[in-house]
Structures are given as structure tokens and as C-alpha cells.
């Protein structure tokens, strides 16, 4: 339990988000372009962090699927900023030793002619340590 609280605290601290402001309207998930790729959707992120149910979030791939487009942040009527929670969960995982999903050396093999520069930058931001 202490561990659980600890993880919740850490996510709240890094994100600066107050999940208690959420009124469970689902607008974040309604607006999210990556919805279908995710196991846990933005409004579920908010609820699971609120209830301290962090483990499943960290074990799921969902936070890698977030495009950091901030649509949910922009449209949430209550200024909850769900993407910041997603980002905080992501940071929590990638900050752990050996948890890199991708190393810079792996990238050239996956490059595509048409890939925009910005995507590379955000990929590094997301996948590398």
C-alpha cells in the first residue's frame, strides 16, 4: 500500500495534476486521436491515478501510444490536463535503469524516408533515457 501511495504521489508530483478535479465527462477520451491504440484511455488514466491503481498503467503499453498532441489538455473542461499524467507515468518507467524501450542505435534501422524530423525528436523524447 505504501508503495502504491508512493507511486501515486510521484506521478502527482511530476505531473502537477489534480485528478480530483475530473468530473468524468470523457471529453479527453472522446478527443484522443490515439484512443484505439490504447488499452487505458485518458479518462481512465485520470481515474486510475486518483484511486492509486498505478501498476497496471505502468505495465501497459498505453503511455507509449500517446502522441503528446495535448488535445485532451486543451479540451478538458476542468483543466485536468490528462496528457501530463500520461507523460508522468512514461517518465516513471523510462527513468528506471534498463527500461529503455528503444536505444538511439536502434533508430536508423526503423527510419522511413517520409518520416518528419519532429517525429524523430519526439520518439527520442519518449523512448530513450
Amino acid at each position: 500500500m505504501a508503495e502504491r501511495n508512493n507511486m501515486k504521489e510521484q506521478i502527482l508530483r511530476t505531473s502537477g495534476v489534480n485528478p480530483l478535479k475530473c468530473m468524468r465527462c470523457g471529453k479527453c477520451s472522446a478527443t484522443c486521436p490515439a484512443y484505439d491504440e490504447m488499452e487505458y484511455h485518458p479518462h481512465q488514466f485520470v481515474y486510475m491515478v486518483e484511486t492509486g491503481d498505478i501498476e497496471p498503467l505502468l505495465n501497459s503499453e498505453s503511455f507509449y501510444k500517446c502522441l503528446t498532441c495535448f488535445a485532451c489538455v486543451d479540451r478538458c473542461p476542468r483543466s485536468v490536463e490528462p496528457a501530463k499524467l500520461v507523460e508522468a507515468a512514461r517518465l516513471m518507467v523510462i527513468r528506471e535503469q534498463g527500461k529503455n524501450r528503444l536505444k538511439p542505435d536502434d533508430i536508423p534501422a526503423q527510419l522511413d524516408e517520409d518520416m518528419p524530423q519532429q517525429l524523430l525528436v519526439s520518439a527520442l523524447r519518449k523512448y530513450s533515457k
Binding site: C25, G26, K27, C28, S29, A30, T31, C32, A71, R75, P77
Partner: peptide, 13 residues
């Protein structure tokens, strides 16, 4: 009686 579809959730766009 009128068969209106009430859906719990918000429109995103």
C-alpha cells in the same frame, strides 16, 4: 417512450 439515445460521455470534436 420516444426512444432518444442518451449516451454518457462528452463529444470531443
Amino acid at each position: 417512450e420516444y426512444g432518444v439515445h442518451y449516451i454518457k460521455g462528452m463529444v470531443g470534436k
